[in-house]
Design a protein around this nucleic acid. Structure first.
Lengths: 217, 217
DNA sequence: GTGAAAAAAGCTGTTTTTACCCTATATTAA
DNA sequence: TTAATATAGGGTAAAAACAGCTTTTTTCAC
């Protein structure tokens, strides 16, 4: 019996991780790695140079073009390609956020290789791969709250800029100066973000932003 | 001509990274991966079950027993084994810190596979591998400051516990309660850490601690 | 064991920054 | 016209940051 290999691409900014993963998956003999890319922009550039992959393994926090944007681009331009998100954290918001962006599954980087291979094969066939992690989050979401409460955190460019500057030793006054805005305006940003992230302090905000893979340090 | 392979072990808590790297390096045909481990304690457990490695690739932030402690243990118990630190960040303190703990080199996870192979072969032979990253830090250290100013940040257990609790939405009052200490005492910890990390705010402290790979979120 | 030194823990303040009110205006979109 | 959004303001209470000092505990040479 002959089973066709699953063709994939890997998008992640850590070279050693990306290349290591490529070798690991190639050795399984069930997966064929067509190409890999540094970030979403690099992926868009390399996509026409290869056959279309069945599945793209997608990191979330990346420079230039992150996993959310890249996934949206894929689903808009190549809806037949399935995206499997790969993340270090199991927070609600990035999981819901990546699924809403169009990903068909979500795996942790702490997973075992065998589980990842299963996930890739599953997502290639069924276009949606639900593991315990994802189903648990979705279930809890329905049980605890109104249908899908955890809206993926949408930030406007100014809020994102502010969030980045928050991850520093700067005071709000200094941040306001750097953004050429009144301290009161960035106070509004702060409050909006505190609500979105459900935190009560700048430290909590920074930690949440990191776990939600919205910023990189 | 026959060149003996370099025997190594890999210590890192991200399974996919660890296993991917193992495959990647094995494929180079110059390196033989004897075993891998989740953290320092796991490494100590597995070490007697295999031939002694020439080189150990060591992550820094790991649960249970981190890279600093693990490296010190290796140099105390098996001084012949060379340690190559693998990190995501290129901050001064973890570089100096790992070198002081006994590591013979420091590589970024953003490196290319070929460079890592060179580093491993270099460190196996010469027991010290200096790349541009490390030499640059050392050089700047000597040029700018007194000989080796950037002392690796040594924290006592209470300070480390406090630092972990700082990475949260908790107030200092709440942290004091959780540690069963007076708020005044943790105020002393705060000030000590601000000095060691050269920061002026809790947010700065948290970011520095993450970049210095002293805490994991 | 004892006592000096060092380290850790605790206290009293003050100033600055954060966090959180509620309001106002200008601009844009429906 | 009405909403919605981004900007900016004043004021306040809490928390964080900083300074200077005392007490307790631990360490260690003697």
């Amino acid at each position: 019996m002959y089973t066709e290999k699953v063709n994939i691409a890997i998008v992640d900014d850590h070279t050693l991780f990306r290349q290591g993963l490529a070798h690991l998956l190639t050795e399984s003999n069930e997966i064929n790695v067509l190409f890999d890319a540094d970030n979403g922009a690099d992926m868009i550039k390399k996509l026409p140079l290869h056959p279309l992959p069945d599945v793209i393994l997608m990191d979330i926090t990346m420079p230039v073009m992150d996993g959310y944007e890249s996934t949206k681009w894929i689903k808009a331009n190549h809806p037949g390609i399935n995206v499997l998100a790969l993340s270090m954290f199991e927070e609600d918001k990035p999981i819901i956020g990546m699924l809403k962006s169009g990903a068909g599954g979500y795996m942790l980087k702490q997973s075992k290789a065998g589980d990842l291979v299963s996930a890739i094969k599953g997502i290639a066939k069924q276009s949606i791969y639900i593991n315990e992690l994802v189903s648990g989050k979705l279930l809890r979401n329905i049980q605890n709250n109104q249908p899908v409460k955890n809206t993926p955190i949408g930030l406007n460019p100014n809020e994102l800029k502010f969030l980045e500057l928050c991850c520093s030793d700067l005071t709000y006054k200094q941040i306001a100066d750097m953004m050429n805005l009144s301290p009161h305006t960035i106070d509004n940003y702060r409050e909006a973000l505190f609500q979105k992230f459900e935190v009560k302090s700048r430290t909590g905000l920074v930690i949440s932003a990191l776990k939600n893979e919205l910023i990189k340090i």
